[in-house]
Amino acid sequence: SHLLVVEPEKIYAMPDPTMPDGDIKALTTLCDLADRELVVIIGWAKHIPGFSSLSLADQMSLLQSAWMEILVLSIVFRSLACEEELVYAEDYVVDEEHARLSGLLDLHVAILPLVRRYKKLSMEREEFVTLKAIALANSDSMHIEDVEAVQRLQDSLHEALQDLEGAHNTEDPRRAGKLLMTLPLLRQTAAKAVQHFYSIKVQGKVPMHKLFLEMLEAKA
């Protein structure tokens, strides 16, 4: 219930109406959106019980590892009500045709299997917020100073997921496990997304804000 309360407000993509449609516009819109979402994600992480008592260095390491998984999981959750469309933001819903026309097809095709996976499970909001926090705590950064403190954070979030399923989904005793088994696909999908945006950064045709660049470089 705490994670539900601290769940961030929606943010909007607000594509620049003066830019001509095409891949530069689409990528500029997504990079700008991602930069603003990162600010929100960093603020959100601080409200996860136990996160702020980690050292600053460990907080940074977890976020630098997991930020794209958190972004992707959020897009996927927003897209659960749609058919083969990705809801990057409420005002930026992309279908396959739009994705093709705006150079987003690789990303689109990479993310859809995850949408299908969570649709099959009918992931609920409570499960989404818990899994998002678990993805952060379970990010397998190579640079953790206090491994035991991070383990305690993982344990408390794991316990929250089990409590949730124990209370609400008693008809399927394996539901928590089924949700956790989606995390490898989330990591794989986020890695593809990072690669996609890293190659866009290298091409240099799309402006990127400093925080997004900083987080991309941390994954390089």
């Binding site: 600010v39 960093i42 600053l56 630098q64 900083e214 941390a218």
Partner: peptide, 15 residues
């Protein structure tokens, strides 16, 4: 840390 100064600053902000 110098390389990741925005993340560092945002985490240090109290809000």
């Amino acid at each position: 840390k110098e390389k990741h100064k925005i993340l560092h600053r945002l985490l240090q902000n109290s809000t």
